[in-house]
């Protein structure tokens, strides 16, 4: 049964949604519009006046090997972060769910990393892996492995991925645990009586029924990896070495605010905007269809 409320006053509904619309307009549409506008202009070296250049900014971007490389970096980075944070979180959630109600304390402990600000998380991991004084870096040195993420691009990527994934695990864990607990116990019991082992039950019953949660987290995690990992990257590697950890959103910042190329930065924002909207649409269109609600 659907219940609907009818408003007699024509303006009341508009009034009620007005704050939300105002916030969206001021903090999203206005800056986004500004970015689109600026992406077709190029400021002079002193920033005194700007010149209309059409699509030159975009043209330049796509011939820039560093920018094209940044796409590959972003793809690698976000898929690694999403996969690692979601699979580890799911694994932890399954274990916690098995323990049952007694897992409360464990759950609380697992949530803590989420309360750590991205920049702090970055610094934390940076110190652990600092080539000179980092505990883990020195431990690796003992085993004959040279760790220096300031020189080695692969190691730098590994470190920012771990730090970013680590922070997101708590969030994913909470949702997965809630998802697992909402699966009726009798379904699991029925599968157990039907002869399915724990692993088989997981892949044939639990995982398919968890798909709404998984899908939701997939969208959230991709967006997280694209945008919210800025703090982590900024504190650990600053996009280096050799731009090997410069994901798209980091390049928007470094090209715009560090290199003062505002036109290119604006053009990059527009590309990023289109990319994320596209990605989200694809996710909803194609993955949602296979989701069991």
């Amino acid at each position: 049964m659907e219940k609907r409320v009818f408003f007699r006053n024509k303006w009341l509904p508009y009034l009620l949604v007005a704050p939300q619309i105002a916030v969206t307009l001021v903090f999203f549409f206005w800056p986004a519009g500004e970015a689109v506008y600026q992406s077709v202009f190029m400021p002079d070296p002193f920033g005194l006046k700007t010149r209309y250049v059409g699509l030159a900014n975009f043209q330049f971007l796509f011939t820039d090997p560093y920018y094209r490389n940044s796409f590959a970096t972003t793809a690698l980075f976000s898929s690694l972060v999403t996969t690692i944070s979601m699979s580890v979180a799911l694994w932890l959630a399954v274990l916690a769910d098995r323990v049952g109600k007694k897992a409360g304390r464990y759950t609380t402990l697992l949530i803590w990393p989420y309360a750590v600000a991205p920049a702090i998380a970055g610094v934390l991991w940076m110190f652990l892996f600092m080539p000179s004084i980092g505990v883990l870096a020195r431990a690796l040195g003992h085993f004959g492995y040279t760790w220096n993420h300031a020189l080695n691009g692969g190691q730098a990527m590994f470190l920012v991925v771990i730090a970013s994934a680590w922070k997101q695990i708590s969030y994913n864990f909470l949702f997965f645990l809630a998802g697992l607990q909402s699966i009726p116990r009798s379904l699991i019991e029925a599968a157990a009586i039907d002869g399915a082992s724990f692993t088989r039950r997981f892949w044939t019953i639990v995982f398919p029924l968890l798909s709404p949660t998984t899908f939701f987290l997939l969208v959230v995690n991709v967006v997280y990896a694209f945008f919210e990992t800025f703090g982590v990257i900024h504190t650990i590697t600053g996009g280096g070495p050799q731009q090997s950890t410069s994901i798209l959103v980091y390049k928007v910042f470094s090209d715009g605010f560090v290199s003062q190329d505002l036109g290119s930065s604006a053009a990059q924002s527009v590309v990023l905007l289109l990319l994320v909207s596209g990605l989200t649409i694809i996710q909803f269109r194609f993955i949602e269809r296979r989701v069991q609600y």
Binding site: P184, S186, L187, E189, A190, A191
Partner: peptide, 8 residues
């Protein structure tokens, strides 16, 4: 089962 526990 009481709620049938069919795999949805």
């Amino acid at each position: 089962f009481q709620n049938y526990a069919l795999y949805p």
